[in-house]
C-alpha cells in the first residue's frame, strides 16, 4: 500500500515545480508541493513548496498573519489544504481518515497555549494517547511517560494538574506529551509566545536538547537566538508565501529579499 502511494507521488511530483525534490526524495520526510489554501475567498497559503529531510531542524518566521501557523497546522491536518500535496513520511494527506490518523501518530505538536487537558494529571495527559491510540499497556505507557517527563526535567510534577503548574512547566509537559507518542516529527507552533519572559529559557533549553537528539523539527517562533543556534534552515513567510529560505548564518547576515530585510530590521532593532 505504501509503495503505490510513493509511486504515485513521484509520478505526479516530477511534473511539479519542486527543484529540491529529486535529490532529497529518499530522505525527505515531509514534502509539500504547490500547496494552496483558502479561508472562504481569502488566499492564506500561496503555492508553498518545501522538502524536509529526516533530522532536519527548520525555523519558520514572519510577521503575524503571514500564514506560518496555518502552514504547520496543515502538516498534521488540523487545517485542510485545498490544492497541492502534503506528503508526510511517505503518506499523502488526503481525505482518507486512515492517512490522517497515521500521520497524526507520527507527528507531535506543541501549541502556543499548551492545550493541556486540565481535567487530567500531568502523567495522565502524557499517557492518554499512548494508551488509547497506540494501545500501549498502562504500566508501560506510564514508565515511558515518566522517562519523557524526566527529559523535560519535571518528573516531580507528574501527579499534579496542569492548572497547578507555571506556564513554562506546562509547556514542557506539552512537549513531553507530544514525545510520548514517539513521533518522527515535532511541530512547534509559537511555543514561547504565551510565556512570561523568565520562563522562555527553560522551554527553549528543552527544545535545544531535543534538537540535539536528532528529531525532525518544524518550529514557528520569533526566538531568533534559537534559530541561530539550532536551525538548519530558516524560512521566512509573508502574505502566505515563502519569501526566503536560507541557512541561519546567511539568513541573518545577508538576507536577499527586501521584505526579509525589513522584517529583520523590525525585530532585531532594539
Amino acid at each position: 500500500m505504501g509503495n503505490t502511494m510513493t509511486d504515485q507521488t513521484q509520478a505526479t511530483g516530477s511534473t511539479g515545480p519542486v527543484p529540491s525534490q529529486k535529490d532529497d526524495s529518499s530522505s525527505a520526510i515531509i514534502r509539500v508541493e504547490s500547496m494552496n489554501k483558502w479561508y472562504g475567498d481569502f488566499h492564506v497559503l500561496k503555492d508553498l513548496n518545501l522538502s524536509v529531510r529526516q533530522g532536519e531542524r527548520i525555523v519558520i518566521c514572519g510577521p503575524s498573519g503571514s500564514g506560518k501557523s496555518t502552514f504547520i497546522r496543515c502538516i498534521n491536518r488540523l487545517e485542510e489544504h485545498q490544492q497541492g500535496k502534503i506528503i508526510v513520511d511517505n503518506i499523502e494527506l488526503t481525505d482518507d481518515i486512515r492517512h490522517i490518523d497515521t500521520v497524526r501518530r507520527e507527528v507531535g505538536m506543541v501549541f502556543q497555549h499548551f492545550n493541556l487537558f486540565p481535567h487530567l494529571t500531568v502523567l495522565e495527559n502524557c499517557c492518554l494517547s499512548p494508551i488509547w491510540v497506540r494501545k500501549t499497556p498502562r504500566k508501560e505507557a506510564e514508565e515511558a511517560a515518566m522517562e519523557y517527563l524526566e527529559r523535560v526535567k519535571i518528573p516531580d510534577q507528574a501527579n499534579k494538574f496542569p492548572g497547578q503548574l507555571s506556564g513554562g512547566q506546562q509547556q514542557r509537559v506539552a512537549i513531553a506529551r507530544a514525545l510520548c507518542m514517539k513521533p518522527k516529527i515535532m511541530l512547534f507552533d509559537e511555543p514561547t509566545s504565551a510565556l512570561d519572559p523568565e520562563m522562555i529559557k527553560e522551554v527553549l533549553d528543552v527544545m535545544i536538547e531535543l534538537a540535539g537528539s536528532g528529531m525532525t523539527m518544524l518550529c514557528v517562533t520569533h526566538e531568533m537566538g534559537f534559530a541561530k543556534t539550532v536551525a538548519d534552515r530558516v524560512i521566512f513567510m509573508d502574505g502566505g508565501e515563502i519569501v526566503e529560505e536560507a541557512p541561519p548564518h546567511e539568513f541573518f547576515t545577508n538576507p536577499q529579499e527586501p521584505r526579509t530585510q525589513k522584517f529583520l530590521e523590525q525585530i532585531l532593532d532594539h
Binding site: N76, R104, F111, N115, P118, W132, V133
Partner: peptide
C-alpha cells in the same frame, strides 16, 4: 470548551468518540 482542547486531541490522533469521551465531555 476552548478550541485548543479539540485541536490538541486531534493532534494526538484521537478519533471523534475518544476525543469526545475522554477530553471534551468530562470537562
Amino acid at each position: 470548551i476552548p478550541r485548543g482542547q479539540y485541536e490538541a486531541a486531534d493532534a494526538l490522533g484521537l478519533g471523534y468518540w475518544k476525543k469526545t469521551g475522554l477530553i471534551i465531555l468530562p470537562q
